[in-house]
């Protein structure tokens, strides 16, 4: 099993990829990727909080913003990526490799 971790901050200025996130004090909301589905498919967080995707499938997956503003990049089995959302809004996303896989992040003020 190959473990990868990736952290991204997404705000009004776009996505910023870095090795570590500023401490937000909140626990990430976890979206499990299993059997070619995001679970849960819809999550709601407050601005400044984070979502963590964890892939449990053999097949690599991504969580990719429909608008192309943020992307977990490829997550192998066991891989995970965390993205912080600073701007309220609704962010639908999909797997770039398996486009039928869809989810949405709702960010409240």
């Amino acid at each position: 099993m190959r473990l990868t971790r990736r952290q991204v901050c997404f705000g009004a200025g776009g996505a910023i990829v870095g090795s570590a996130l500023p401490a937000s004090g909140s626990v990430p909301v976890v979206v499990e990727i299993r059997a070619f589905a995001f679970d849960p498919a819809e999550v709601t967080i407050r601005a400044g909080e984070t979502v963590r995707w964890i892939n449990h499938d053999f097949a690599p997956h991504t969580a990719t913003d429909d608008e192309g503003n943020w992307d977990t990049e490829e997550l192998e089995k066991g891989g995970q990526a965390t993205i912080r959302f600073d701007t309220p809004g609704t962010y639908p996303y999909f797997c770039a490799y398996h486009p039928h896989m869809k989810g949405v992040v709702i960010v409240t003020a």
């Binding site: 099993m1 097949a59 690599p60 089995k77 398996h98």
Partner: peptide, 16 residues
């Protein structure tokens, strides 16, 4: 491309 990516991943797991 998806076939290459996914089947490679499965076969890597099988090899492991």
């Amino acid at each position: 491309e998806t076939m290459i990516r996914d089947h490679t991943a499965v076969n890597v797991a099988a090899g492991d």
